[in-house]
Design a protein around this nucleic acid. Structure first.
Lengths: 121, 121
DNA sequence: ATTATATATGAATAAACGCTCATATGTTCA
DNA sequence: TGAACATATGAGCGTTTATTCATATATAAT
């Protein structure tokens, strides 16, 4: 994990950092996975997107449904749906002039429920 | 959910938004919960903090351990630990001059594993 | 074809964020 | 008490981001 060549940290406490760091670093997922994980949670880290996802738990909705629900402009809604789509969390389906969005992942609900458990304890 | 008094959205598609919006809005958690949920995920939405949390899955560590592990300054590490502490995700324990941090929540691991499942599929 | 409508997208802007630097706080030991 | 050290914190800076506005694209209907 200590990727860079130059040590940024220098401390004189009695703790043998090398041993601890070596042991912990070995057990951690690869750097890239952790980065991707942060990217995923970044998508969840906005209340507008949280609301959209939660709404889609109930049923597929078109852009203007969602815009009505959240009292947002079509444009803002569409921008956020793009973020969700790029994260492979929702998928679109065209029906005439309307685009219907639905959830594209079965893990989300579990993630959200665990998140709420943290909040409500 | 459509909190404001003025409609931001006006569209003429054949869909009866009021019905759909009413039904979905009824089933959604309260606005405040969704906001808090977003705040929680925002904390997870940074790879530095993800790494810290994942390291603490293994064992309690002091600030300079973590700084070594991530090759970051003590200051940056401390700032991030403060964010995690404020979100009630980690808790500090003093031992002499050192502060040891450990995880303060049993939901995190489940949330992260579901997140990785999403990424790895 | 032309018009109307639903959605998408690029640019601009204001707010939020993570890091660095300087400094403060709290503990240990001489 | 004072020096040394681990950690915490406030200010500043550059970057990211969510929304708005203007405009583009795609489908449907006349």
């Amino acid at each position: 994990m200590p990727a860079g060549n130059e040590e940024k940290v220098r401390c004189d406490c009695k703790i043998v950092h090398e041993e601890i760091v070596g042991r912990v670093a070995q057990k951690m997922p690869p750097e890239e996975s952790l980065y991707d994980l942060a990217e995923l949670f970044k998508v969840f880290g906005d209340s507008t997107r949280i609301k959209i996802i939660w709404a889609l738990f109930e049923e597929e909705m078109c852009v203007c449904d969602i815009a009505h629900l959240l009292n947002m402009t079509h444009s803002a809604t569409s921008h956020q749906l793009r973020v969700l789509k790029q994260a492979r969390l929702v998928k679109p389906r065209r029906e005439g002039k309307n685009m219907f969005y639905s959830l594209d992942d079965r893990h989300i609900e579990e993630i959200f429920n665990q998140g709420l458990s943290h909040i409500n304890e």
